[in-house]
């Protein structure tokens, strides 16, 4: 019995280690390539550790991508904050102030989460142009806020649904109204909900590409567009796009490693029926 168990454990652990190597292989390759001097990068020695380390790749990548990085930061922070506030209010209404047709309306809003964005691309930039928002970060932020409404509302709605009705009712007895309840009961309990939504929206916005490339002028390009251009040029030395990839991945990776639990919760929220 004991022997059998050990065999099982051995299989499990070796499979886990094997998979881990598989999942870490790309990041290993990225780091070692970023640390090489362009002249030392060749296809045949791609897997070898760098002989002498070239930290310069990162400085160079930051020189090129720095403005894009800042654009993405402004964009993601501002759009995420507004998204979270809107989502919290919407989720509060959808879960605690049900109106006739509440569920139908909610389902219709939810639909916006799943549309392929190609279907709204042409009208989107026509409208942004009419609003004089085309080309800059505010326009891109507006798009992210609007199309973020479904997911943020969903997450908060499911989160608030767990707050017992009795709490709401007793607050109403005490004379609290819409905002009173929100401030005294909902908001103090909202912290984990906000963390989940903020992480989710920030990651989504940081990583988005299609709108970035179609809706912004050069000076407002987010990091994904900057990286695509850095890597898309042809006679490139690969240390630069690799360092750029690490730079573009840095903020989301940090969030993920520090707050993985909440990240997963957001991930599951998007797929568990509301």
């Amino acid at each position: 019995m004991l022997k059998k168990l050990n065999w099982g454990k051995l299989v499990v652990y070796s499979a886990l280690v094997l998979f881990s190597l598989l999942y870490l292989m790309p990041i290993y390759m990225t780091i070692i390539t970023a640390l090489k001097h362009p002249v030392n990068i060749s296809l045949t020695t791609a897997w070898k550790l760098p002989g002498n380390i070239n930290w310069g790749s990162f400085a160079e990548a930051y020189n090129t991508l720095g403005p894009n990085f800042m654009n993405s930061l402004y964009l993601a922070v501002s759009a995420t904050v507004i998204s979270a506030i809107l989502g919290s209010l919407n989720g509060y209404v959808f879960s605690k102030w049900k109106f006739p047709g509440n569920e139908i309306v909610f389902t219709l809003v939810l639909f916006g989460m799943f549309i392929p964005y190609q279907i709204i691309l042409i009208p989107l930039f026509r409208v942004l142009r009419q609003l004089n928002l085309y080309g800059g970060i505010p326009g891109l932020a507006l798009a992210h806020i609007v199309y973020g409404i479904p997911i943020t509302s969903l997450i908060f709605r499911n989160f608030y649904a767990r707050i017992p009705e009795s709490m709401i009712e007793s607050a109403q007895m005490d004379g609290a109204g819409f905002f009173g309840i929100y401030r005294r009961i909902i908001l103090p309990l909202s912290a984990p909900g906000f963390v989940v939504v903020v992480i989710w929206q920030f990651t989504q916005i940081w990583n988005e590409f299609l709108w970035g490339i179609t809706l912004t002028r050069h000076s407002a390009n987010p990091i994904t567009v900057g990286l695509a251009q850095l890597a898309g040029g042809q006679a490139v030395s690969w240390n630069l796009p690799m360092a750029g990839s690490l730079l573009a991945a840095f903020p989301v990776l940090i969030i993920y490693i520090l707050m993985g639990r909440y990240f997963i919760r957001g991930l599951l929220a998007g797929s568990v029926k509301g």
């Binding site: 990041i27 390759m29 990286l227 890597a231 990839s245 573009a248 989301v252 990776l253 969030i255």
Partner: peptide
């Protein structure tokens, strides 16, 4: 380890895997 790729942008993953 298994979940970190999920946090990356398609552009980042695409660039790395192209190499």
């Amino acid at each position: 380890i298994f979940l970190y790729p999920m946090s990356l942008s398609f552009i980042v993953t695409g660039t790395i895997w192209r190499w």
